Simulated scan of single mutants.
Amino acid sequence: MADGTRQAGPAMRPSVRETYGPADLSRDRVFAGGFINFGHWQAIDLGRPLDERDRIRSQEDLYRQVLAAAGAPVEARILEVGCGTGMGCALALEECAGAAVTGLDIHPDQLRRARDTHRDLLRREPERLRFVHGAAERIPLAEDAFDAVVSVEAAQHFPDLQAFAAETSRVLRPGGRVVVASFFTVDDAPGRPGELAGLLETFANGLDIARPVRELTDALTAAGLTGARAASIGRHVWPGWDLWLSRWWAPDTWPRNFLQAYRRGILDYYLVTAEQPRSEPQP
Rank of each mutant, 00 (worst) to 15 (best):
T168Y: 01
V213H: 12
Q162H: 15
E215D: 12
I209W: 03
G175T: 13
F183C: 06
P174D: 05
V213N: 04
R177D: 07
D208E: 14
P159T: 15
D160I: 15
G198H: 10
R173W: 00
F158T: 12
F158Y: 15
L207T: 04
A210Y: 02
G194R: 08
D218V: 02
L161H: 15
F183Y: 03
P174N: 09
G198S: 08
L161D: 15
H157V: 05
E167I: 08
D188T: 13
P159R: 12
E215W: 00
A163C: 13
R211C: 07
L199P: 03
R211P: 07
G194N: 12
V171L: 11
R211G: 10
N205W: 05
L199G: 09
A197K: 04
L172G: 09
E195D: 13
E167C: 14
F164H: 08
F184K: 06
E201C: 04
A165I: 05
G176R: 01
G191F: 02
Q162Y: 09
D188S: 09
L199K: 07
V178P: 01
V186R: 00
L200D: 15
A197H: 06
A181R: 12
A166N: 14
T202A: 08
F164C: 13
L216M: 09
E215I: 00
T217Y: 02
V213K: 08
P159L: 03
R170S: 11
H157Q: 11
A165N: 11
V179R: 06
T217P: 07
E167F: 06
D160T: 11
P174Y: 02
T168P: 13
D218P: 01
R214V: 14
T217K: 13
F158D: 09
V178L: 01
R214Y: 02
L200A: 08
T202P: 00
P190H: 08
A166F: 04
D188K: 05
